[in-house]
Amino acid sequence: MQNASRAGRPRASSRETLAEAACELFLEQGYDETSVADITRRAGVSRSSFFNYFSSKSDVLWSGLDARIEAASVALASLGRNADGPAVRTALEPVVRGFAPDPLVLALRNAAAMGVEEELLRDTGIRHARIASAVAAAARSAGVDDIRADILGAALAAAVLSALRVWAEQGAGQASLEAAFDQALRSIHDLPWG
């Protein structure tokens, strides 16, 4: 027996519909001037539907990257004493591999037009801290001293986020995010003042 179809928008498309509506509104009227009510009205869904997918307006921009950072953090934690450069890189690669343009990429490319410069600055710092903390913990588990572990964490987090930002700003379809990440990792070893 076939199930009757559900009324309303299909669950899988509501997240995308909300994200699309939010990005349109951010471009039209700015981030600060856009409310959750504006987004749900544009998307044609209820306020509770919005909060089924996103915890805040800011989460619309970051949820895709946050899921990738969480998965990388789990992979890094599982390395234990086996953490080394290649293993850590392998754990971080899924953060950038196959990253399709999404609301964050659109925001990075159109920060001024969307009025999200402050939002991006503040919340990039949060993501940097999450990645850096996970990498540093993996390094400490492998016996790296605290200062070096913290520096490794900060450098690798900067490589991930810088590659993502540059890739988005240059036009996400124009180049490979994975190549930008490779370049960022190589840059760590070539920094002046070392």
Score class of each variant (00 low, 15 high):
Met1Asn: 12
Ala4Asn: 13
Arg6Phe: 12
Arg9His: 13
Pro10Phe: 01
Ala12Asp: 13
Ser13Gln: 15
Ser13Trp: 13
Ser14Asn: 14
Arg15Thr: 08
Arg15Phe: 04
Arg15Gln: 15
Thr17Ile: 15
Glu20Leu: 15
Ala22Tyr: 02
Asp32Glu: 14
Thr34His: 04
Asp38Tyr: 09
Thr40Ile: 11
Thr40Ala: 08
Thr40Asp: 12
Arg41Met: 06
Gly44Trp: 01
Arg47Pro: 08
Ser48Arg: 14
Ser49His: 05
Phe50Thr: 08
Asn52Ser: 14
Phe54Ser: 00
Phe54Tyr: 11
Ser55Gln: 10
Ser56Val: 02
Ser56Arg: 07
Leu61Met: 10
Trp62Phe: 15
Trp62Val: 01
Ala67Gln: 10
Ala71Asp: 08
Leu76Pro: 00
Leu76Gly: 02
Ala77Glu: 12
Leu79Val: 04
Ala83Met: 06
Asp84Lys: 09
Pro86Lys: 04
Ala87Ser: 15
Val88Met: 08
Val88Ile: 15
Val88Lys: 00
Thr90Gln: 07
Ala91Gly: 11
Ala91Ile: 02
Ala91His: 01
Glu93His: 12
Gly98Asn: 12
Pro101Asn: 03
Asp102Ala: 05
Asp102Phe: 03
Asp102His: 05
Leu104Ile: 03
Val105Ile: 13
Ala107Val: 04
Ala107Gly: 08
Ala107Cys: 06
Leu108Arg: 00
Arg109Asp: 07
Arg109Cys: 04
Ala111Lys: 01
Val116Ile: 07
Glu119Lys: 12
Leu121Glu: 10
Arg122Thr: 15
Asp123Cys: 10
Thr124Ile: 09
Arg127Ser: 04
Arg127His: 13
Ser133His: 13
Ser133Gln: 10
Val135Ala: 05
Val135Pro: 00
Ser141Phe: 10
Ala142Trp: 02
Ala142Phe: 06
Gly143Cys: 11
Asp145Gln: 11
Asp146Gly: 09
Leu152Asp: 03
Ala154Ser: 11
Ala154His: 09
Ala154Pro: 03
Ala158Ser: 12
Ala159Gln: 09
Leu161Glu: 11
Leu161Met: 09
Ser162Asn: 09
Leu164Val: 11
Trp167Gly: 00
Ala172Tyr: 01
Ala172Val: 03
Leu177Glu: 09
Leu177Asn: 02
Glu178Ile: 01
Gln183Met: 06
Ser187Glu: 09
Trp193Gln: 12
Gly194Trp: 09
